[in-house]
Amino acid sequence: MEDDILMQRAKGGDHDAFRQVVERYQREIYNYFIRSTGSIEDSEDMTQHCFVNLYNSLGRYRRSASLRTFIYRIATNLAISFSRKRKLPLSLDILVEGGCDPASESSSDRPEDLAYVRELQQAYVESLAKLPAEWSMILDLRIGKELSYKEIADAVGRSVSSVESILFRAREKLSAGMAPFLSR
């Protein structure tokens, strides 16, 4: 069933329809929070919070808007607010320890190649964690979630040109952090 129909039913008090929305989007929203918090517990709390906020915003949802973008807008606000309160530097080690299989990234089975891929991944998540929170979120919305510039602009409340500029600077900074591994 289409998002719009589910949302209209949810507006009418249909909890099963809203449950389907949750089931459809919770995984990607949870992972969006994982990449912005680096914490399983915080990501779970924030995912719950995000969907409660979505439920509370049912009246503001319009058919013309993409539900996915609408949810990411709520999620981004939560993630930015969380990052402002964070006292410790962000660590995304969970992405390397938690499930990143080096073998899936490497065409080789040789231990030294797998070790290199692991090292590369570790360096990448460390560089990603050093980016300003909003930059890494925008980068993830573009590369990880494949949102268009316009959708990202709607989700983060910026102009398209601002999104483009942030992506440019984020890539520049990532390239600098990854310089030892890159061919330049």
Binding site: H15, F18, R19, V22, E23, Q26, R27, E28, Y30, N31, I34, R35, I40, E44, T47, Q48, F51, V52, Y55, I94, L95, G98, G99, C100, D101, S104, E105, L120, Q121, Y124, V125, L128, L139, D140, I143, G144, R171, L174, S175, M178, L182, S183, R184
Partner: peptide
């Protein structure tokens, strides 16, 4: 080539499975 490689690294970041029962907890929260 480098920018493409960075993109592939990002796309290759793992997606973690949400904890079991998360949907139920979200609906209970609602």
């Amino acid at each position: 080539g480098d920018l493409s490689a960075l993109g592939r690294l990002h796309s290759g970041l793992p997606e973690l499975e949400p904890p079991a029962g998360l949907t139920d907890r979200i609906m209970a929260g609602i």
